[in-house]
Write a protein that binds this DNA or RNA. Structure first.
Lengths: 118, 118
DNA sequence: AGAGCGTACTCCGATACGGTAATATCCGCA
DNA sequence: TGCGGATATTACCGTATCGGAGTACGCTCT
């Protein structure tokens, strides 16, 4: 049958690397801000500069990474380039993560307590 | 009403930083390997060393980060310390990410083509 | 073809992060 | 109380990554 479907995959180093890379793309406040700014639709780079407050060059680099990770799509629109969320998967990921935040506060507290123990 | 529920949150810098931090904890093959090694139950550090092939000190650091991020729990068991997945949220996150991988291959191809264009 | 705007790329300094080796701490047991 | 195994912590090094500044490229219009 060769279960190509949702079967549990082998955790090969290559797969781990690929998955880690995707997570890494989301492991940066600036990029999360960009994704957030795209939540209500397509935006040009200039619009994203306004919305996020990032410098143009910096923003461009982050956009490349998000694009390479498959989180956003690109489209030339005359002089502009319009970026958009590739799908709602990112939002689901962030939602899952945000839910964890509230419940994780206690653990964080414990860690802090451990850190300053003694 | 002060919507503390699943309402859309403000994307404050602090929140972005916190969320990014959580993603950062998953943005490393070694830590994903650890989580994978915990999929079928509690494991001691020594067992994790065997299963992941990581050096003890190195593994310990990764475990601290996973713990601080709230992905794993800790429990003293005599001479050992047993780690376990805090909940199945991590698995859901990874599953979501893995699903994206297959579909993202095309985009990656495009990026590569762009990189070596000319 | 040239000007002007929007976007991508390159180079740089500062900082963060992962891996290793050595050391410290914690625990159970004689 | 002292020993030995298990885990945590520290110091150190090499590398990756971020942000900023400057520059190159693409597109449109005249």
């Amino acid at each position: 049958m060769s279960p190509k479907r949702a079967a549990v995959r082998q955790a090969t180093p290559q797969l781990l690397e690929r998955v880690a890379g995707r997570f890494r793309a989301l492991a940066e406040p600036a990029r999360l801000a960009v994704l957030h700014a795209l939540e209500d639709g397509e935006r040009s780079v200039s619009e994203l500069v306004e919305r996020t407050g990032l410098a143009q060059g910096n923003l461009s680099k982050h956009l490349q990474q998000l694009y390479a990770a498959g989180f956003v799509t690109r489209r030339r629109d005359g002089l502009f380039v319009q970026y958009a969320l590739a799908d709602d998967g990112v939002l689901r990921l962030c939602a899952l993560m945000c839910d964890r935040l509230d419940e994780g506060v206690e653990a964080e507290r414990a860690v802090l307590a451990t850190a300053k123990r003694r």
